[in-house]
């Protein structure tokens, strides 16, 4: 419960900030959608697994949005989001059938490999995907409203905020449900799971599908707010960033991924201005420091202190 309250405070803070400082509106929406994707990574981390390729679902949803928007001009933004999520969920369900058999290093690297294939394919088929230049998405109507850039972003911010509230609520329920607890058992004792008659693979598959739809949601929002999708969104570096956010925020509560994303986005924004050349270095060093000093991330720390 405390966690949900913390999430609400965080989201209210973000929305208020976005209204007071309009130039931060876009970064805040981007950060929040990053948080959704990182939450997807956190779901897998509960099972002790790390994927190094989940940006592919972000990318896939973003490209789906771009394609559909191009094919059906005039389609509503909300419909685009739903389509993006649906497509990445279906992709996750199919890829999941294959990767749910693998654990740890194999799991992480297989996801990486699949995402590299997607990245390469998008880059290669220039005439369909626009290659490395990506695809533009002209601003659609949203929930029936034809809006200017600012109004559109406000509506998108509200949609994102509401989605996060719903998603954190459902994910927390999931973590406490039998399926969620089975998922955590994969981390500690898969053999035992099989010996009480539970298919660890199926349990993990469900977690994988959930994670891919969260990443899809993030990607769809991302595409709309940026108005541009590029293959970079699915590059391994992006997947690495998602893992980073998830570790930074910690998996003790779904709130962690959101606050982790906020911290990350603003760190990035200022690092990008002050020292572009050292960005990866900062990222890498911070990652090492977090794992050393605060293995539970922000939410783990807050939970220890009984704040959430």
């Amino acid at each position: 419960m405390k966690g949900i309250i913390a999430t609400i405070i965080l989201l209210t803070g973000s929305v208020v900030t976005a209204f007071l400082l309009p130039h931060l509106k876009t970064p805040i929406i981007l950060a929040l959608s990053y948080g959704l994707a990182a939450l997807g990574i956190s779901v897998l981390m509960r099972a002790g697994q790390v994927s190094f390729g989940h940006a592919m679902y972000v990318c896939l949803a973003a490209y789906s949005v771009a394609f559909i928007a191009k094919a059906y001009p005039g389609i509503d933004g909300l419909v685009l989001i739903v389509c993006g999520v649906a497509i990445s969920t279906i992709a996750g369900a199919i890829i999941g059938i294959f990767v749910s058999k693998y654990r740890e290093i194999f799991f992480g690297m297989l996801n990486l490999a699949i995402s590299m294939v997607l990245f390469a394919v998008i880059g290669k088929y220039y005439n369909i995907t626009g290659g490395s230049d990506g695809m533009m998405i002209s601003r659609p109507s949203f929930i029936g409203f034809e809006l200017e850039r600012d109004g559109f972003e406000t509506l998108l911010l509200i949609t994102t905020t509401v989605s996060i509230l719903l998603v954190t609520y459902f994910i927390e329920r999931f973590f406490n449900s039998p399926a969620g607890k089975f998922l955590c058992a994969i981390k500690t004792n898969e053999t035992r799971l099989e010996y009480i008659g539970v298919s660890a693979r199926f349990v993990f598959w469900k977690g994988y599908v959930i994670s891919s739809s969260l990443c899809g949601l993030a990607g769809a929002i991302f595409a709309l707010v940026q108005g541009l999708v590029t293959p970079e969104m699915g590059y391994w570096l992006k997947s690495g960033e998602l893992v980073f956010i998830s570790l930074l925020g910690g998996v003790a509560h779904s709130f962690g991924a959101i606050i982790g994303a906020m911290a990350f986005e603003f760190l990035k924004m200022y690092a990008a201005i002050l020292m572009t050349d050292y960005w990866h270095m900062i990222l890498g060093s911070t990652l090492i420091l977090i794992i050393y000093f605060a293995p539970g991330g922000i939410s783990g720390w807050l939970k220890n202190k009984k704040y959430i």
Partner: peptide, 24 residues
């Protein structure tokens, strides 16, 4: 998992309780 959860998980497995939403 806590001791209680360990037992609860076996019971859930026995009775095919695999809800994603209801608490264990």
């Amino acid at each position: 998992h806590t001791v209680r959860e360990c037992i609860e998980l076996s019971l859930a497995a026995r009775d095919n309780k695999t809800s994603l939403f209801k608490s264990l």
